[in-house]
Design a protein around this nucleic acid. Structure first.
Lengths: 124, 124
DNA sequence: ATAATATTGCAACATAATCGCAATAAATTA
DNA sequence: TAATTTATTGCGATTATGTTGCAATATTAT
């Protein structure tokens, strides 16, 4: 399905690439000047995920957070990376660090979803 | 607050220690013969978590899964361990494997929530 | 047996996320 | 530029997960 450029998409993507953090739908909505419907934001976010522009993280609060692979002024983040949720500033950050583990080789790993919780470098 | 023994608690704990898997509230409810209210199951599960008997995992579906630290006939599982969600049999398993990562020391890690997705040893 | 209070069931509530459908708007074509 | 196609949006309704208040019940201790 062909994509079209809309103010909504641009606004959503702009917020995420600027902060470089993983944000929830309502946090994104608050950061955008224009009014965008909740359902629309979710659809835009999910479409970006399908297209490999964004990725989705589910935190221990059960909510979905979305983050760009490209933060402005930084290198692109790897597909398999860690996430850090700070309990102080309540942001979720993508870390340039791989997750390592050793499990029996009978297991076939397709995806890694790893969220660390604690105090981030700005708040410690 | 003192705890009391009830049929509900026993039934819930029995299911989880027998399977050794992480289960959601509705999965637990289905496995129990007697009828137990949804809210009650959640309260029992959360109380067990508070008491360190169970632990809670949030999977990428945003749902909570609960697992015992002690599976019958197996060694106790460590606090910081991996979880594996099989896409075939749709179970969540606690793995006897630690998560390793290296991040800047400014970060203070309090908790690790790591769920691998793929095909488990029984389904591969 | 009685009293104290932990536990339960029920209903209501809160929140996250999705979906159908009609209206709108972007991109393509004439 | 105008017309056409169809991707996108907004709205409302819906689903699902999880929690909470409150009265009724059941467990434990006296």
């Amino acid at each position: 399905m062909k994509r079209r450029n809309t103010p909504t998409k641009e606004a959503v993507l702009e917020v995420l690439t600027t902060t470089g953090k993983a944000m929830s739908q309502d946090a994104i909505e608050q950061e955008i000047d224009i009014n965008i419907n909740r359902a629309t934001i979710y659809r835009v976010l999910n479409r970006f995920c399908d297209d490999g522009v964004l990725h989705k993280i589910v935190a221990e609060d059960g909510k979905q957070y979305f983050a760009s692979y490209n933060k402005v002024g930084e290198q692109e983040i790897a597909k398999n990376h860690l996430h850090f949720k700070c309990l102080i500033c309540e942001t979720i950050e993508c870390l340039h660090a791989e997750v390592n583990f050793s499990i029996p080789k009978a297991y076939i790993v397709q995806d890694v979803n790893c969220v660390l919780t604690g105090t981030c470098k700005n708040c410690s």
